[in-house]
Write a protein that binds this DNA or RNA. Structure first.
Length: 661
RNA sequence: GCCCGAAUAGCUCAGUCGGUAGAGCGACGCUCUCGUAAAGCGUAGGUCAGGGGUUCAAGUCCCCUUUCGGGCUCCA
């Protein structure tokens, strides 16, 4: 019998019988690998383990412990979901079911526009477990598109996919361009055993060898989703699930979800009396209560101080402007859908501003500028209004009115590189002060299609951004062609305390507005070049940043931001005088301090302060009154400290506030 | 905007088959004066989101509106 030779990722080679599969290869390496393998990568392409190997190929066996393997596992679980739904709901049809981050989904359409209920999810999950217990093999079948169209006769969405993918019919350019050669498609069939028909799905694959490899999954929720994401198309019923390689990983994920819910800024905002969303205001519009407003003010004060130190000049601009401004800026051309409708006054339309930039351009243009004036860094905490879809608003994270910490920097082309480098450094250093130190950046470059500005300027700016990223030592990925038509940009994401990523800051070049508004400056040689404009938002939205911080800290703001830094609890009414003295001393040193009088039991008052997440609870009784000390119960500490001299505590708090820790 | 779901006291929620509204916490009052995460007793608090309809009777069933929640292509 002839042999084939395949190579492994470590460079070693193995001989196998002709016709051997990746599964055979895994078995030849070890029983453990054979059991854990879910898919193979053959010459760089993912393949089913059962696919025969060609002589000379390089093969990697992938287990569910890798991202690639997990991807396949989730994909196969989605497939089982579809099988269960088609079993349980006669007349149901199915569309697509890809793996996604943490899990998978599958889109269905039920006869008569039916919907899934939570009880249905349980039934479906039970059926999925039966299918998994049956350990049905996934078998790949390739067939002509015409045959597939017949096979999926009752499933119009599958037919649409076949037509788009294999025949290039009725699809947009992207799909048609990737049509597979020869008009064939692949399907996966898993046999139910006995005389049952089994289940077949149109699928590129690959899949795990059999359903028995699956099992650590949970169905999560059902929602509506448009076919191909377009609101012009029918609304399908989407079922979301999560799937993992091990029971422990599944449990960990469910725990993280519970943790995220515990940190939900809308819940914490209510519990800590920070912000509310009265129904009378409308979607996406919040009011700030005294404690929330205090924290916000501290954030804004710090931001202003840093900007002052960083060479920015503060400006203000109105909330509305005549339509002519937005016509000149181009917003009415390309951004009108996100703008509030105009109000008509004295025969002219006025629009609430969705951005501050045109106003800052007006300030630049208010007098002739010289190269000596550049870079001109204008900063405003400017409230903007955007008409977000009512279904998209979400607490402080997506609202219809918010405050941008918006800078516009006008600089000469030759100073671009150094300005970008210092800008990025500035952004990162402010974010670090708020407790973020895990950053991820994205560089978006010139789009392939329509763009403004000369290519040389694009290249210069893009390289300037790249150099800034390199010198900051930041991890970044490049989104080739992902930039806006008016300039390249850097987006900075931060990772929060529970590993979630938030896009916050952006540094965006703009070659468009200076052109539209005819900006120029007088250079040293008397020529009049255009300045380059840089948009820079750091928090992005003050409100959203506050929401992210609230979730990051789970409501336990560090001392420098805590609305109450120390709460003084007299043990009994007799200590009220000393408690007041302690509070006065702390206030005179600039600390935010409250006294909780002894008309409730001490334990209850300690609890109240803990629930309010006050950094320091100070208990004062007889000993303290006699000795000028306090009992210090720090947030997060194991137990209270006794007999701490008041001055020593005040110094410690001062240090902590100073360090913003 | 669109799909599904939800809305009962300040908060969290119960309310059966359609039969006239409940609890805990919080608030307020009185008592207790206490050394580290919930003292005792009492009182107030509701147009059951708003509007319309069905019914002898609606928190409960139907319709509309408002707000909230989840979701709305990382091509099979």
């Amino acid at each position: 019998m002839s042999q084939i030779t395949v190579s492994l990722p470590d460079g070693s080679e193995r001989e196998l019988a002709e016709g051997a599969s990746a599964a055979d290869l895994a078995a030849s390496i070890g029983p453990r690998l054979a059991a854990d393998a879910v898919v193979a990568v053959v010459d760089g392409a993912e393949r089913d383990l059962a696919a025969p190997l060609a002589d000379g190929s390089s093969v990697e066996i992938v287990t569910a412990s890798s991202d690639r393997g997990l991807h396949t596992l989730r994909h196969s679980t989605a497939h089982v979901l579809a099988q269960a739904v088609l079993d349980l709901f006669p007349g149901a049809t199915f569309a697509i079911g890809p793996p996604i981050e943490h899990g998978f989904y599958y889109d269905f359409e039920l006869p008569g526009g039916g919907t899934f209920s939570d009880a249905d999810l349980e039934r479906i999950e039970d059926r999925m477990r039966e299918i998994i217990d049956a350990d049905q093999p996934f078998r790949r079948v390739e067939m002509a598109a015409e045959d597939a169209l017949e096979l999926f006769e009752a499933h119009p969405y599958k037919r649409a996919i076949i037509e788009a993918v294999a025949l290039g019919v009725g699809a947009d350019g992207d799909l048609a361009s990737e049509a597979s050669e020869g008009g064939t498609v692949s399907c996966y069939r898993n046999d139910a055993g006995g005389d049952a028909d089994g289940f077949v799905d149109l699928c590129l694959g690959p899949h795990v060898p059999s359903t028995g490899r699956l099992g650590h999954f949970a169905l999560q929720r059902v929602s509506g989703a448009y076919w191909r994401g377009s609101e012009r198309n029918p609304m399908l019923q989407r079922i979301y699930g999560t799937a993992w390689a091990t029971r422990k990983e599944l449990a960990g994920h469910l725990h993280r979800l519970a943790e995220a819910e515990r940190r939900d800024h809308r819940r914490l905002a209510a519990e800590l009396d920070l912000v509310s969303w009265p129904a009378e205001l409308g979607p996406g519009l919040a009011v700030w209560h005294p404690k929330g407003a205090l924290i916000r003010k501290l954030m804004e004060d710090y931001s202003r101080q840093r900007h002052a130190d960083g060479g920015y000049e503060f400006v203000f601009s109105p909330h509305i402007a005549k339509s002519v401004l937005w016509e000149t800026s181009g917003h009415l051309d390309f951004y009108a859908e996100s703008m509030y409708p105009p109000m008509e006054m004295d025969g002219t339309d006025y629009y609430p501003k969705p951005m501050n930039c045109p106003f800052h351009v007006m300030i630049y243009r208010s007098s002739q500028r010289s190269y000596r004036d550049l870079p001109m860094r204008l900063f405003e905490l400017g409230a903007v209004y955007r008409y977000e879809l009512s279904g998209a608003v979400h607490g402080l994270l997506r609202s219809r009115g918010f405050t941008q910490d918006d800078s516009h920097i006008f600089c000469a082309r030759e100073h671009l590189a150094s300005e970008l480098a210092s800008l990025l450094e500035f952004v990162l250093s402010v974010l670090e002060a708020f407790g973020f130190n895990d950053f991820q950046a994205r560089l978006s470059t010139r789009p392939a299609g329509k763009y403004v500005g000369e290519e040389a300027l694009w290249n210069e700016a893009t390289e300037g951004l790249r150099a800034a990223l390199e010198s900051a030592g930041l991890d970044y990925e490049t989104d080739e062609g992902g930039g806006a038509f008016y300039g390249p940009k850097i987006d900075v994401d931060v990772r929060d305390a529970i590993g979630r990523s938030w896009q916050l800051s952006t540094i965006q070049l703009d070659f468009n507005l200076p052109e539209r508004f005819g900006l120029e400056y007088v250079a040293s040689d008397g020529s009049r070049p255009r300045p380059v404009m840089i948009h820079r938002a750091l928090f992005g939205s003050v409100e959203r940043f506050f929401g992210v911080l609230l979730e990051h800290y789970a409501g336990a703001f560090p001392a420098w931001l805590a609305p109450v830094q120390a709460e003084v609890l007299p043990v009994a009414a007799a200590h009220a005088g000393y408690a007041a003295e302690v509070a006065d001393t702390l206030r005179s040193r600039g600390f935010r301090t409250e006294v909780s009088p002894a008309d409730e039991p001490l334990g209850k008052r300690v609890r109240n302060a803990k629930v309010a997440k006050v950094p320091y609870v100070l208990v004062v009784g007889d000993d303290d009154t006699a000795n000028g000390t306090v009992g210090v119960n720090a947030r997060g500490a194991k137990g209270p400290e006794r007999d701490v001299p008041l001055e020593a505590f005040a110094d410690r708090l001062a240090q902590e506030v100073e360090a913003r820790s």
